[in-house]
Design a protein around this nucleic acid. Structure first.
Lengths: 360, 360
DNA sequence: TGGTAAATTGGCAGCGCTGCCAAAAATATG
DNA sequence: CATATTTTTGGCAGCGCTGCCAATTTACCA
């Protein structure tokens, strides 16, 4: 069933007015559809100098109350909107913050953006972003494009950048914030948590709970290097315990509930005697959970499930998902605060929380 | 269990070099950490004029192959990154596109951003965004802030803007795109689908399936006006059929799985004889689904569930969710394409698809 | 009231780039 | 070989704003 069809054009954008044109100036202005009021025009209308208008609008420097009122009245009357492009060019340092993120489908990154944008908006900074699709080459191209806007800071996910990206960022003079990972050397500021520690603790938890025949279902680890780090530490910890990973299933493509479901199905077809499965993240784990639900596999007695991220939905399913909750929004907030405060280079570990849940 | 602690500062951002300073110029440059290479410097290094460099870099106008090589070599050697701020100021029209969206938690908007950003990146446009939290006042403030960047277009959700916002946008001279809603008058371009039609079809479907005692669980409708429109048409359709809505439960706050779960629980406590429940969206519906699962309520025989959005996860649960799938990514793509092409004012209805699923 | 310190204010040179125009060089034409 | 065209190129005036500095006005003190 398909609804909808191409709609008609709505002529709301308006054409040129047909009458009442007093002068050529008026005519031109109307045809341009452009209310490009400049600071100089405001100054003239208010009967003051340009710099005075600038001072009043930025509330910077000194001016009398009367001047202030006259300027504000002119601004109001003319509908003046300051041009930040010009302002940024004239002054030093922009109030743009550039985000170069791997994906917008992965809630991890939209959570970070959410946390950051709230702080940035409060401080009158403007967020700009681009999406790399986990492609390091694209990251480099997009980071270059971002630097062209001379942002106050560039925020990136993790440490895995091409040499070109790293070199360029270092040379750019703007702040660089690497997010969501702490297992590596920061270029400038880093905010997040250790994915290696998360993998380690996940394994330790399953071992503590008595699971011994453990499998893994994950998505493309070459691209999502943070998931790769978790998995690698997870395996190391299992090995150290003398109960190595029994089987793994890597699905092609991005993490998703559907992929988790199919991944577990395929894993179980090959390894029938597992007692627990570690998933690359909660989306995947939920897929696994639904597979068990549909197949009548008892959780956790027949099979335990463990995820990563601590999504809200994991707490709403009949058996709360056992997982690790990561401070994604806080990562964005702290990162933004450090940028706004122009804090010195540093690495901030926000840690994570293991949620015992009911699935493992 | 809490892991992690404040990390040590990583001195990677570097301090000033202590020796080998040849001149004051060098010293100053180093302290600035700023490799601000300008077009003029490139021109000098390449032994050509500024406008020639500009032409080569933009591949616009004519220049010889030899000149091109010399310029590119100088660019490479100096690590020049063009300043788009200056470029935008000097030329007419920016390549910025501003998004003013209600929320980043709601996947609807990140899907739209995703679709749009892919198209924008291909065309060398840059996306900037701010989040209104469904607050019309904030929308106005943020839209003003956006206009200060003189974007090529402003993209907003729906038609419900304050008079001030509408007036300002109209006067701004930049393109305005209203997304995800077609039930109203567009300011310029509109891309999306009819929420009223969606509500109507949802009701018609439930009626067709034989449900007669229908309830509703929704979230804050004053803020999410699109959900409000769906609900209102849904009710109208039920009324017209002579089987009006039996009961409704509006939860405070944003839509979420948890809220859907609690909402259904409260609704069923008041109205025990419902045979179907319409949810404000899939997140809420999933919560309802999980509530039934946990309470042993048979779906759809005891209670049918119907959602809105067509999230992927709805297809991965044991019984695929009955819902309406909306073209969110496509909405973003089309909107971006129209802006890039500077298309005339128009309203494009992308429609939606009713998914029969197994829950209603 | 005269004189100095403090508070206001305006003028104007850029910020780095693009766009226009005329000059110069290369190519074509008679 | 001179002239007409066409292609390349450089110079320079802004784009709209900020920051510096000097000029002007006002406030304050003896």
């Amino acid at each position: 069933m398909k609804n909808g069809n191409a709609g008609d054009g709505a002529p709301a954008f308006g054409g040129a007015p047909e009458s009442l044109l007093i002068s050529d100036t008026k005519l031109t202005m109307e045809f341009k559809h452009q209310a490009t009021v400049t600071l100089a025009e405001v100054a003239q209308a208010a009967g003051v100098g340009e710099s005075t208008v600038s001072r009043v609008l930025r509330n910077h420097g000194s001016f009398s109350g009367r001047t202030r009122e006259r300027v504000m009245a002119a601004v109001e009357r003319l509908g003046y909107v300051p041009n930040r492009i010009a302002g940024t060019l004239a002054s030093t340092g922009s109030r743009l913050v550039a985000f170069v993120i791997p994906s917008l489908s992965n809630i991890v990154f939209s959570d970070v953006l959410r946390g950051a944008s709230a702080v940035l908006e409060e401080n009158h900074y403007q967020a700009v972003f681009s999406v790399t699709d986990y492609d390091p080459g694209k990251e480099e191209a997009l980071a270059t494009a971002m630097l062209a806007w001379r942002p106050a800071a560039v925020m990136l996910a993790g440490y895995e950048h091409t040499d070109g990206t790293a070199k360029m960022l270092r040379a750019s003079g703007c702040r660089v914030v690497e997010l969501l990972d702490l297992d590596g050397d920061a270029l400038d500021i880093a905010v997040g948590f250790s994915n290696r520690a998360a993998g380690r603790e996940s394994a330790a938890f399953l071992i503590r709970r008595g699971y011994r025949r453990i499998g893994y279902v994950g998505h493309d680890l070459d691209r999502d290097t943070r998931a790769g780090k978790r998995f690698s530490s997870f395996c190391d910890t299992l090995d150290a315990n003398g109960t190595p990973l029994i089987a793994r299933e890597i699905v092609a493509g991005a993490s998703s509930v559907e992929n988790g479901k199919q991944g577990l199905e395929r894993l179980l077809a090959r390894a029938t005697d597992l007692d627990a499965v570690y998933f690359s993240n909660d989306d995947m784990a939920l897929g696994g959970y639904f597979h068990c639900l549909a197949q009548g596999i008892a959780i956790p007695s027949q099979l335990a499930i463990f995820g990563y991220n601590g999504l809200d939905i994991g707490r709403a399913i009949p058996q709360p998902l056992s997982t690790i909750r990561t401070p994604r929004v806080a990562t964005g907030q702290i990162a933004a605060q450090l940028v706004v405060a122009n804090a010195p280079p540093q690495a901030i570990d926000l840690g994570f929380e293991l949620i015992e849940g009911a699935t493992a």
